[in-house]
Amino acid sequence: MAQQLTAGVSLKPAYMAEALHVTAPGLFFEVHAENYMADGGPRLAALDAIAGRFPISLHGVGLSLAGDAPPDTAHLAAWRRLVGRFNPALVSEHLAWSAWNGAYVPDLLPFPRTRAALARIGDNLARFQDAIGRRVLVENPALYMPLAGHEFPETDFLAELVRLTDCGLLLDVNNLFVSARNLGYSAEAYLADFPLEAVGEIHLAGHAADSRLGESLLIDSHDAPVAELVWRLYERLVARMGARPTLIERDENLPPFAELMSERVRAERLLAKPAAAALHV
């Protein structure tokens, strides 16, 4: 894609009409790939129109990379059709699983980061990248409960995946913030260990406190504006790493399109700051 991506927003059906007529250099739109896995219809036609004007990012939520089974071949074929149709600027998936024994759980589920799991996920990811002929960005998950049995910290596990498959990474700063709070580690220390050179996209989103456990359990709810503490983390990250395409993610409690676009402007301004500022942060 010739155009340089700066900041983008989630594209929801409710935003299609306004999105089509907006003008903003560097703007891109991200959709959940699975929502467009259809034979035809108005939803695909609307995305065709958007893709004619803006770069598109296809974000997968259902490949189940971290499941103990190869990716579903029908799902890979559906992915191939989407990539062929929309020629996305970015393609991403999650370090998580959702399929088990032919049934699908609509969530992004955790797993013990073992050597065996690394081999399996590396293989799954290689199959995915081969099937669509693209480098895939793998996203760090939002975690809610500590698990026993990890053999790698998450940052090392992601670095190993990059080494094994030449994939890229999608660094979700909100997921990082939520996981650090929920599991009791330092977000800054996590970022210090993160393989930043592989980051091809950043996600920013809002979160919510659990209705029962309160602030000790944050939910990656995507139903609110990006939190101030997440903005601060993002600002320091960009100052250190330099600019990367950044998405304002929103899936629930959708605000007016203009509100989402104003969050995007805030990200764009931070991205435009000279990277040299990093020296003084």
């Binding site: 409960m145 698990l147 659990d210």
Partner: peptide, 15 residues
């Protein structure tokens, strides 16, 4: 066996 904290099940309910 994989839940390493006493409030594991309460946290699991998010899933």
């Amino acid at each position: 066996p994989w839940s390493s904290r006493s409030d594991g099940e309460a946290r699991f309910s998010v899933y």
